[in-house]
Amino acid sequence: MTKVEMTVNGKAVAADAEGRTLLSHFLREELKLTGTHVGCDTSQCGACVVHVNGEAVKSCTMFAQEAAGADVRTIEGMAESDGSLSVIQQAFQDHHGLQCGFCTPGMVMSTAALLSENAKPTETEVREYLEGNICRCTGYHNIVKAIMAASGQDVSDIAAE
């Protein structure tokens, strides 16, 4: 066991971790931040995506000890300081970009990473960026729409509303 310290959602935290303790496990079980989900064990579904030092990573494929000293942001740190939904979160609600909600934290974190790299992504860019985030409920229609809306683009002429 090693004491691992890091900053999570702006707060300094410290907890014990074994070498094999994954960052996802550390967040969920030690810090009780259960918004980060684990949906697979081959690093593909993306439900566990968090930001480490500003970059999106799969927290199920990174050891907690590797994140020692890092600035980590999870879904619990995405809302506005007054608790209201952020622009991305609000767009997901407005455009019904989630159903069961299980993949949603990863989708929101990936969206935030995308929009920080590419402020106005095209539909194709959005779809390609989501290669590592699997959703089983929505058929992706409203997720893609929500992300484009979150980037300030007019989505009113997208089919089916």
């Binding site: 995506v49 999106a56 990573v57 799969k58 990174m62 990936s110 290669e131 590592g132 985030n133």
Partner: peptide
């Protein structure tokens, strides 16, 4: 290669 999160690691 892979997906964006994989590329970051």
């Amino acid at each position: 290669i892979g997906d964006p999160a994989v590329r970051n690691r």
